[in-house]
Design a protein around this nucleic acid. Structure first.
Lengths: 124, 124
DNA sequence: AACAATAGTATCAATTTTCGTACTACGTAC
DNA sequence: GTACGTAGTACGAAAATTGATACTATTGTT
């Protein structure tokens, strides 16, 4: 099924509640879950704006279909901005939005956790 | 397919490399990806040890099949400890391991990010 | 005897995610 | 004329994830 651009991928939230309101983990799982979203976001957040094939070459194993799908979903969720230059051949640039840039702490925490695990030999 | 207990779910890592070594994002995606793992881990990390049906009742929409599957996978990855008491009816307790407890910063960063998004009206 | 709780297992089905491959139009290089 | 790069589209297939449902043995309660 082809979704129109900018249509949210998120369904009505059914997360259990906490005193601070609905628990965000199911929503966050939908936003950054899947095989490729974390690495795409990490690249755009920490390495800046990239074009389609730069991303494709940076990510081992991803297909162009999947890259397109994931970029569209991330754009729909407001985490990526897509900028088209009216040129030939086509030039399209992808950037992390401000909202995505605010995920830096999460990525740093993940990375630190992994590195600590490497040192302790605890990583799966 | 039924996996034996404690057998890792992780396939050979194919992540692209960084100057600091292989990029951990694909591995982290496999560890905490999927629909239910984040919320299971969050509950066990922040609310302490739970039994099976306590978890089941805490999480809206999860089926017993999925809860069992996800607990097994998390245990296999060393993020959850499962303790069986030889009682009738059965008493099984699930806890976050030390390794999982080290994910608190990641969860706090995620939660803060979401709460900031709620305030700014930016959440999908 | 019936019901409930416990923590699942087993099996099949449904849904979602990911992949594979052929194709597109244009400009440039050879 | 052919090949390449660009950033995809289209469509069907495969794989993975998630769900639905019936069932299990034991104890305790009514």
């Amino acid at each position: 099924m082809t979704k129109s651009r900018a249509q949210t991928t998120q369904k009505k939230q059914q997360a259990s509640s906490t005193p601070q309101g609905p628990c965000p983990m199911p929503s966050i799982a939908r936003l950054i879950g899947g095989k490729w979203k974390l690495i795409i976001l990490q690249i755009l957040i920490f390495n800046g704006t990239k074009r389609f094939n730069e991303l494709r070459r940076s990510i081992d194993g991803i297909t162009q279909t999947m890259l397109t799908n994931q970029l569209r979903a991330l754009e729909a969720d407001g985490l990526i901005a897509r900028r088209i230059y009216p040129e030939v051949p086509p030039r399209v640039e992808y950037s992390a939005t401000a909202r995505a840039m605010d995920l830096q702490d999460m990525f740093l925490a993940m990375h630190k956790w992994w590195v600590d695990g490497e040192k302790g030999g605890d990583n799966p």
